[in-house]
């Protein structure tokens, strides 16, 4: 009985202590942030959204390769010799048209791994966090600033130049092959002239002719 009373007393005491704490909080200040009216100030380096400064991008694809979830899609077209794409603000020469630079923010896991490998620091996280969408496809951000017509033109040009180059290369290859042939023929002739009198080198001649 005494034990029960003692226990009850301890229980009451602890309840009153607890109630004292809660009533103090009742009259205390609240920590709520009334969200749409007052917004939290994120630190400058908050990782809330990826942003690409497309002017500085050299299309090196390092960020896409660093991404663990493959949410960065980059298509590049090499620039033709008649156009100079200029340099980035960090001084790296640009050699590619960026026909596509898409980031799927629905897939992104904000890990920051794409930011560090970038040689020109053109991809980075910004602290904008209110970009929800009703349609998931709207979360794919297109950073490439090339018009579709421009893309087609650039692609054609690049294809042309590539074809031209290919042709040139083929030409060169042919020329080289021809030259090599000529040389071979000449060598043959010389050898023949040289070996006119000798008959021992007959098999080696045959081999040369085959190759």
């Amino acid at each position: 009985m005494v034990e029960a009373f003692k226990n009850s007393w301890i229980t009451f005491k602890s309840i009153f202590i607890g109630m004292g704490i809660t009533i103090r909080h009742f009259f205390g200040k609240s920590v709520t942030l009334q969200y749409p009216d007052e917004r939290p100030v994120l630190p400058n380096n908050a990782r809330a959204k990826l942003y690409v400064n497309i002017d500085d991008c050299i299309g090196c694809n390092l960020c896409a390769r660093a991404c663990p979830v493959n949410c960065i899609y980059i298509d590049t077209v090499p620039s033709t010799s008649d156009v100079d794409l200029g340099k980035t603000s960090t001084g790296n020469p640009k050699r590619f048209w960026l026909t596509r630079f898409d980031i799927d923010m629905a897939k992104c896991m904000y890990c920051d791994l794409c930011v560090h490998p970038c040689p020109t620091n053109c991809i980075y996280m910004v602290s904008e966090y209110e970009y929800s969408e009703f349609n998931r496809t709207n979360l794919i951000y297109h950073f490439s600033n090339l018009e579709p017509a421009m893309v087609a033109e650039v692609k054609e040009k690049a294809a042309n130049e590539a074809a031209e180059k290919q042709r040139q290369r083929e030409e060169m290859m042919r020329k080289k092959a021809e030259e090599a042939k000529m040389k071979q023929i000449e060598a043959k002739k010389q050898a023949e002239e040289k070996n006119d009198g000798e008959k021992g080198s007959e098999p080696s001649k045959k081999e040369n002719g085959d190759s």
């Binding site: 301890i10 602890s14 202590i17 704490i21």
Partner: peptide
């Protein structure tokens, strides 16, 4: 300390 009072040593 507050947690101790409010919860840890609360009899219930």
């Amino acid at each position: 300390k507050e947690l101790d009072d409010l919860l840890s040593y609360n009899k219930i």
